[in-house]
Computed example of a mutant assay.
Amino acid sequence: MKQIIWFILGIIIASVIFLFDFEQINKVTPYFYGLGILLLIAILVVPESIAPEINGAKSWFRVPGIGSIQPSEYMKIFVIMMLANVTYKHYEIGNADAIKRDFILLLKIAAVSLPPVLLILKQNDFGSALVIVVITLAITFLSGINWRIMLVIFFLIISTVTGLVLTFIYNPDFLLNIFGTYQLNRIYSWLNPFEHAEGIGYQLKQSLLAIGSGMIDGKGLQQSNVYTPEAHSDFIFTIVAEEFGFIGASIVISLYFLIIYRMLGIAMYVRNNLFEFYICIGMVALFTFHTFQNIGMVSGLIPITGIPLLLMSYGGSSVMASMLGLGLVLNVSLKKRDYMFSNDE
């Protein structure tokens, strides 16, 4: 019932978005971004009676009568809007020196994305911080910055990832200064879940057993019998695979692909309207990464990061934030569509 109520509220939020054009949305974007930053700061300083620590992360406000609110979920959408805002305004102003212009744009993008990433990492929510990094990279790579600068950024990313992998292999204790025991345990449990079956690998082991037991056509609705922790939230895809098998899981993946494909089509259609274009690209990155990461982690392909499966995992903040983002994309599609017999040139 709670999930139904959150979806209804999400539909209302998406509907309200249709009342505004993108000139108005562009103007209010910095205020939403600022509100998101204030909430991320507040969650770190308020007492645990208001923002309790859950599963090692302090990421939720406890609101009596409502439940929990997770600001980082809304912050993902606010970051998309703000990155679209600064990129659009940067090219609107223009600059004769292309290289200087590109470096200034990179600094603006970093100034938008770094504060929420650092604040979310401080909450010990590595997954949400990683989502914002991926969104930022997607918008940056499509922002028109000189390919030589982008090549350097790409090289730095590859070097950093390679360095972290080598450090994990040869000196894992050093990574405790960066990630902490909780994140490292997730990597150990991913590498060999059955070796840690009764401890840190228990969740992944149960997920793999549940997915495998579903086989081709599944056990049937509400017939799952393999216990998986957090099956209603981050591991909801495990239940889909167990109850509906490979066929049901494939249908769900296909539906996500369809959503992403349609958003990408809308983005290409409005590519000359930069603010709307970057909002669509940010939402494509958000849905693509959430889907790939969530399904990958429950099936053992990549480490567990606690990222929900959008529109399916239990949680009001995730549902309403997703609907807010989809409302923006649908608004782009509606406002920028050409109609037969239109007077617009």
Rank of each mutant, 00 (worst) to 15 (best):
W6Q: 00
W6C: 08
W6G: 09
W6L: 14
W6I: 08
W6N: 11
F7K: 09
F7D: 12
F7Q: 10
F7G: 13
F7P: 06
I8F: 12
I8C: 09
I8E: 04
I8N: 11
I8Q: 13
L9D: 05
L9G: 00
G10D: 11
G10C: 12
G10V: 09
G10I: 02
G10T: 10
I11H: 03
I11P: 08
I12P: 06
I12H: 01
I12W: 05
I13G: 08
I13Q: 03
I13V: 15
I13A: 13
A14K: 04
A14D: 04
A14F: 07
S15W: 01
S15G: 10
S15T: 01
S15M: 07
S15C: 00
S15Y: 10
S15V: 00
S15P: 04
S15Q: 04
V16A: 13
V16K: 12
V16T: 13
V16R: 09
V16S: 13
F18Q: 15
F18G: 09
L19N: 15
L19H: 15
L19G: 13
F20A: 08
F20C: 09
F20G: 02
D21R: 08
D21G: 00
D21A: 11
D21S: 13
F22Y: 15
F22K: 13
F22W: 15
E23C: 11
E23S: 15
I25R: 10
I25T: 02
I25Y: 11
I25E: 11
I25G: 08
I25C: 09
K27I: 12
K27V: 13
K27L: 12
V28R: 15
V28Y: 15
V28H: 14
V28A: 15
V28E: 14
V28P: 11
T29K: 03
T29E: 04
T29H: 09
P30K: 05
P30E: 05
P30D: 03
P30S: 08
P30H: 10
Y31P: 06
Y31E: 05
Y31M: 12
Y31T: 10
Y31R: 10
Y31I: 12
F32K: 02
F32Y: 04
F32D: 10
F32W: 00
F32G: 12
F32P: 06
F32I: 02
Y33E: 10
Y33M: 05
Y33S: 01
Y33A: 06
Y33C: 11
G34A: 04
G34Y: 04
G34Q: 04
G34M: 07
L35K: 08
L35T: 12
L35W: 09
L35Y: 03
G36F: 04
G36P: 10
G36A: 00
G36D: 01
G36L: 06
I37T: 00
I37K: 00
I37H: 07
L38E: 01
L40S: 03
L40Q: 11
L40R: 02
L40H: 01
L40F: 08
I41E: 01
I41L: 03
A42P: 00
A42Y: 03
A42R: 09
A42E: 00
A42C: 01
A42L: 13
I43S: 01
I43A: 01
I43L: 03
I43H: 04
L44W: 02
L44Q: 05
L44D: 05
L44R: 00
V45T: 11
V45C: 09
V45E: 03
V46F: 00
V46N: 06
V46W: 07
P47R: 06
P47A: 02
E48L: 02
E48G: 10
E48R: 09
S49P: 02
S49T: 09
S49I: 09
S49C: 06
